[in-house]
Write a protein that binds this DNA or RNA. Sequence first.
DNA 1: TAACTTGATGTAATCGCTTACAGGCGGAGG
DNA 2: CCTCCGCCTGTAAGCGATTACATCAAGTTA
Lengths: 410, 410
Amino acid sequence: MTSSSISTRKYSDACHRIPVLLPVQAHGRVPFGDLSKRLHVLRIEPAVLEFFMVGKQIPLLNLEAVAKRAGVSTATVSRVLNNLNVVKGSTRTRVLKAAEELKYHPNLHARSLARGKNRTLGILVSNMENPFFFDIYHALESAAHSCGYEVVVANTDYRSEQLVASVRLMIGWRVAGLAAVVSEMDSHLIQMLTDSRIPIVFYDVGTPQKNITNVRVDYRKGMKKIVEYLHSLGHTRMAFLGHHSTLGPISERKKTFLETVTRISPNAEVHIASGSDGLEGGRLAARELLSSGFDPTAIICVNDFMAVGVLRQLRDQGVRVPEEISVTGFDNIKLSEFCSPALTTVHIPRERIGQKIFEILVPGASSDRLAGQEILIDPELVVRESTSVPRSEQAGGHIPKRSVSPAVVR
Amino acid sequence: MTSSSISTRKYSDACHRIPVLLPVQAHGRVPFGDLSKRLHVLRIEPAVLEFFMVGKQIPLLNLEAVAKRAGVSTATVSRVLNNLNVVKGSTRTRVLKAAEELKYHPNLHARSLARGKNRTLGILVSNMENPFFFDIYHALESAAHSCGYEVVVANTDYRSEQLVASVRLMIGWRVAGLAAVVSEMDSHLIQMLTDSRIPIVFYDVGTPQKNITNVRVDYRKGMKKIVEYLHSLGHTRMAFLGHHSTLGPISERKKTFLETVTRISPNAEVHIASGSDGLEGGRLAARELLSSGFDPTAIICVNDFMAVGVLRQLRDQGVRVPEEISVTGFDNIKLSEFCSPALTTVHIPRERIGQKIFEILVPGASSDRLAGQEILIDPELVVRESTSVPRSEQAGGHIPKRSVSPAVVR
DNA sequence: TAACTTGATGTAATCGCTTACAGGCGGAGG
DNA sequence: CCTCCGCCTGTAAGCGATTACATCAAGTTA
């Protein structure tokens, strides 16, 4: 104990978290600069201090505690908890009892780290509020749970910076597989995912590669079915209502619409309009469309959400559907069956897509080799109440016929 | 090299994952039992074999690789990546360059483990498809992201065994805080969560404790507003449509309905009916209600989802809303604004709830001390198109008045 | 210049778990 | 009886980060 010099230099890497400077004493004098300046560091707003003082989370029990209580080694406890059947029955029950009494829950981070792998899948979706995305997520999760896998979701809100953050997160979590069901993917991110060597499934974006599979729905076929159906009813003045997205599926629907119309109904008049996604988007777009001078007999919407917004707006303006204008959606979300009038739309089998994604991501979940391929899924036309023969034909004395096409009715 | 005895006994704990038994040779003879019996173990279905052969995930780069490339120690790399400003500028850029080139992503499991804490919050919801739950989740996530926190969701599907699994998972992940926005919580689980010492927020269940906060909406007040409003319009034959749930909020709404009716309108006739949750539930319940003999002038639904189902069913049966029957919902989900007629309902401020939950869970996010308390949030009546004076009054020559009550209109 | 501080970085312990490997022990084979 | 096998369990080395402490050079004070 040399009382000559007590130099308590306290240095910590974690200074950004608990920035405490202890007073420094050397030869009994105040060294170097003004001490009060340093102590100032300690004068922190109470709220801020509390924020910084978020200490280590009180550690829960660990394997060792259980092992000690059961009188065995950590290895044995681990073996019991992992259901390795190499442990003697009596030891096993003793361990389980100890774990139960201590209310032990294994630390999954430590487990993932030690195992070097885990049973967690990630899924990126643009908008969980949209039942379309939800259904895929839900089907994926069901399949996963039945095989002991977990699923973590990231909702990107259609914001690409959020998407980047989510991708980083998923890679950081070292998920065993990742499903990207988003519309805002760009090549830079695809590269990042490829590099990560995590098995990936893209929905509707990109091309298959080594660890990348592509699941896509044949939108062209679906849009063709709609246009052909409307054509068979006799519609010639059609408006297509899209939304502002330059990306794949959306523009593909628009393109197919145009192609099909010009092919099967060369004399048709066509109008293309856009709004933002969602209910309000459809509503506003419909208002603009009706005041634009173009007088459609049918409005083909890029998805059900917009279509429901359109229905709402038409109703407000006193336009009867389908007598005056027919409206169609796309996706067949649940809502489309319950809005009024019920929506004629195209069904996309979300459950099958989610299931398929799981089979692709988890090797051994399916007997087929699916990874690295492109998987195409067929949509179906669903005819409900929002479409009928156009008003000119009705005026001409035709009886509105509903069973014109061989469409599926559900 | 003793050629006398080559005993290659291969034993591995991981036998449940890669159950390979190598042939055993001792003194050149086949020992103990029939060798073919053991080799049989090797004869495995190819698919199964592949399943078991899921090797270690190819390790991504780790800190050490980056450190080596940059010519520094792992400590320095860690300091750079954590933005500790103790590192020299030139070193810093060198490290960042190396990390970039190697496409390094830190392993978040290792980070959580080493730090003993993390910035992840968990949220349990009964049904993400219900926009009510989604909105809370979404608000929570927004608040979290703006403070560098992540959010993981677990969807329990109203299944209690799923809830138990999710709680286990969250505890295993050592989330920094957990929001339980579920209706199927039981005391056993609450105990489990209390024991975990994780900060918890319950929505509408349980009582505040040490690490448990309770956020609840004053449903009584909301239901009172609805009944009073209908009463002021002149309704006297009201039906309440609930769903089969013995739990808190649902039965509370029913109870308050009954209390309020008997208090302010003692002569009213009342009918209580039930269905399952959701659109179909409402639809079926409405059908049963109408064929029950009771002839209501107003149907008060326990939530908007059921109300929309009811609207749909009434429309199918040719009953006009609100002229013949008024319908009200509860929650003010987005759909209630877009269905037809737009629904009179009670607005629950989900954004504020989500935001509040974050402030409670993360110490320092708010200046108030919120943890361990009970927080009560006020709902508001939203009058739209689905309610009006009852038909008897209309027949009596009254002019339907919309502005009877001081309700908020949005 | 001696004594001390500061800045920048390396060394190594640690987080909680998994699992390869090393015994100990009892029973079967010869 | 000796040998070997298989069952069961313990020991200890990782997994990939964080961070307390040590170190060393350069700068500052008196």
